[in-house]
Design a protein around this nucleic acid. Structure first.
Lengths: 244, 244
DNA sequence: CGGCAACTTGAAACCGGTCAATGAAGGTGG
DNA sequence: CCACCTTCATTGACCGGTTTCAAGTTGCCG
């Protein structure tokens, strides 16, 4: 596994578990013959982080942006009295955040779900790298747009959809993203979210999430246990989630 | 009023009712001695639009971005079966949208609330204008960040707050924006939203919004009728809205 | 004066929340 | 290897905020 490779002294990007995504390539440099970037174009600061640790808290000043190389994390918001709303889940290859490309702080907080490997880069360096090349700018722009659309979807979920739809939608978008990551899944996915996390992401309570999951299971739509998800009837889940 | 001035052949920006906001200045050019931009730096296409008209529908290709010079409008999302979620309200000086600066379509739709005056500009021209000047880029960046934060607030509202809090929050953010527009209000605001619109913005039903408004009125927090809002007890409204 | 849209009010149903008890899984130390 | 603890999932009973449905009422405009 990647984390092991890293701890043993391997050069992280040469064994990137996220398939060395486009925007890393255009920032860090293309892979050479032997999988090595010819020379680092900007400073990278790798760090392994334990599960359930806050990486960044909203409105904190920072000079860095964060790339999640391996593991799972999520961004979230919190009310004054501690109620939490998860905004997005990050998997290998995602970065935090578009805000931090423009400003020196973000309104979102960032927290690990599983043990994770992060790469921190200096905002200033990333920015100048982006401005240097139209292609890089386009790639990053696309990521930001995709982010925006995901946020819109979530707004619609929270404002206008009921529990079934929200949970079905969450499961579908997560699995679709995992599918796009390259490795074939055939309906079997790693799924490290606890019911508490699903609840925080869908604006529901853990208890009610549990009930809905039981219902899905009963109807033969999914199997879900011990960090593993199996999609049994994707079509019906799509119908339930009212995906357009 | 501005719309009248415009119909009578006045040059729009010289009598801008939105106080000729920073980002218009840096795009269109600084005001001259007699309130005239020396020469238009980019093409502007003005248009008066009736209340309750769609200006832009999500995912439509467009080469333009839209500036709302006068009136009220809102951006919204819709489910396949027609449920609507309002994302933000636009008042004079706001533009639509940050997405359209990067991409040739947006996930949000745009619709007028009142009779409005819009200015359309070519995305390509705006973009090159932004890239030309660090200052312009910063101003636009700030607007996009503010947008982002407003969206975050809404996510938290829809996911984690109850009806009282959502409505109080909406009223407060709207009035604060109007206050920042320059003209002094002293607790009296134009308020063209119907209860249906408030409902669509807060993820509630019009009936329940009505009940909550009655409650606010009964408690002496606000007066609200005939397109006019008066804040009677702002402090208590802040407490209710749990604004941090 | 009539017509229409928006607002108000009431009663009943329902979705999801709250509280509480039980069970299953995994980790730790004796 | 087992006793113990902690965390998370499951289930049941009940509650309450919000929705739904429906019938007025108000206010505006022609």
């Amino acid at each position: 596994m990647f984390l092991k490779h890293f701890r043993e002294g391997g050069r992280p990007c040469s064994a990137c578990p996220a398939g060395y995504p486009q925007f890393c390539q255009s920032l860090v440099g293309p892979k050479g013959e032997h999988g090595e970037p010819p020379q680092p174009v900007l400073a990278q600061n790798f760090e392994v982080i334990e599960p359930q640790r806050n990486i960044y808290l909203r409105n904190a000043k920072t000079e860095d942006i964060y790339v999640l190389c391996d593991g799972w994390a999520f961004t979230f918001l919190q009310t004054g009295d501690g109620r939490r709303q998860i905004v997005s889940f990050l998997v290998g290859g995602d970065f935090f955040s578009c805000d931090l490309l423009i400003d020196d702080s973000s309104g979102l907080s960032l927290r690990t779900l599983t043990k994770s490997l992060f790469c921190r880069m200096r905002r200033a360096e990333v920015r100048s790298q982006i401005l240097k090349s139209d292609e890089t700018w386009n790639i990053v722009g696309k990521v930001c747009i995709a982010n925006e659309r995901a946020k819109n979807d979530l707004l619609l979920d929270l404002g206008r959809r009921n529990a079934d739809e929200r949970i079905a939608h969450l499961i579908l978008t997560l699995t679709e993203r995992l599918d796009r990551l390259g490795t074939p899944h055939n309906g079997n996915y790693p799924f490290p979210l606890r019911q508490q996390d699903i609840a925080d992401a869908t604006g529901l309570t853990p208890v009610h999430v549990g009930r809905m999951i039981s219902k899905f299971r009963e109807f033969g739509l999914i199997e879900l246990s011990a960090g593993h998800l199996r999609l049994l009837n994707r079509a019906e889940l799509v119908r339930l989630g009212r995906i357009d």
